[in-house]
């Protein structure tokens, strides 16, 4: 692609030892990961983990304490403002100018970006079912969030940085949002998507970084993460079955039964469990998506967890 940044093989976002202290309080410490062009990268962590802190450093709202963040080849600490022509950013706590209508606000931003972008604004608003003629302070939270989505996408940026973008969006709009992400990805954009819900980034992201208390726990493929994650599986049988044989199957950590239903908690491959269930004539199998909590729990159990925090604190 073009010479300055979106070249295959060169990361679009590159964090190296990125660290932020708020005075003496830790924001994030030593974050290191890359997001490649055409990649949707999930950025996960519980409340207060430091997702927003990291993102605000990348977009230049916060000054970096230590380490560096590079976007499209330019160090954000010294990059000219024009770099931001190629970045789309949706803040986590979105606040718009309430006294303007959606259309006025978006036209203002377009002018500040040096263009009109009328077609794109109208197109995006139509897709998200957004009424541009209403005053922003009259719009619901979700409809305001749509304006946030439009302003992030309207200049077709090469890098999208989205802090909990689907907050408040209804399922239909959420689908359309996912379509927008897909399109941007197809056009080679690098997309950093923060969330504290795994299921949200699940079918969008390829890789994820998980942080907690300002520290990176893992950067991994979502699929392999889920394989490792602790999850629960409900198995329905024609009649009650013995639970003891389940407990010894590899990966299973807990077994409970109620009537003819068996619920197993497990990590890793499900093959052994399913084979045993089929032998017993299982009627149906339901796997519950591992929640982020469960993944943390798995990470702790797997010993990836930072040593200073005891596991029982996480469970509590």
């Amino acid at each position: 692609m073009d010479a300055d940044g979106v070249a295959a093989g060169r990361p679009s976002i590159c964090l190296a030892g990125l660290t932020k202290y708020y005075g003496h309080n830790l924001g994030v410490e030593d974050l290191t990961f890359d997001v490649m062009p055409g990649e949707v990268f999930g950025f996960l962590g519980p409340n207060g983990a430091g997702k927003t802190t990291a993102i605000r450093m990348i977009v230049g709202l916060l000054r970096i304490t230590r380490g560096s963040a590079t976007v499209l080849g330019a160090d954000v600490a010294s990059a000219p403002a024009s770099l931001r022509h190629r970045i789309g950013y949706l803040p986590g706590a979105l606040v718009l100018y309430g006294n303007l209508t959606g259309g006025e606000y978006l036209r203002f931003l377009a002018r500040m970006r040096g263009g009109a972008m009328t077609r794109r604004i109208n197109d995006l608003s139509e897709r998200l079912n957004l009424d541009l003629t209403r005053h922003i302070h009259d719009l619901s939270k979700g409809n305001q969030q749509k304006i946030g989505v439009v302003q992030a996408f309207m200049h077709s940026p090469d890098v999208l940085i989205l802090d909990e973008p689907t907050a408040g969006l209804d399922p239909i709009v959420q689908r359309e949002f996912e379509a927008l992400i897909d399109e941007a990805q197809q056009q080679g954009a690098a997309i950093l998507l923060s969330s504290h819900v795994l299921s949200e980034v699940d079918h969008l992201a390829g890789r994820v970084a998980i942080i907690d208390e300002g520290h990176l726990l893992v950067v991994e493929d979502i699929a392999s993460l889920k394989r490792r994650a602790l999850r629960t599986i409900d198995l329905d049988f024609p009649q009650p079955v013995a639970t003891a044989p389940f407990a010894v199957i590899e990966g299973v950590t807990d077994v409970r039964s109620r009537g003819s239903q068996v619920t197993c908690t497990m990590t890793g491959e499900e093959t052994g469990l399913l084979r045993h269930a089929v032998d017993l004539g299982v009627l149906s199998v339901r796997t519950h998506e591992p929640s982020l909590d469960q993944i943390f729990f798995s990470l702790v159990q797997g010993g990836d967890r930072r040593a200073h925090r005891p596991a029982d604190e996480v469970v509590a």
Partner: peptide, 12 residues
């Protein structure tokens, strides 16, 4: 909170 978007526009 409106500065978040204003100050991430391509204007210094």
């Amino acid at each position: 909170g409106t500065a978040d978007i204003l100050l991430t526009l391509p204007v210094s």
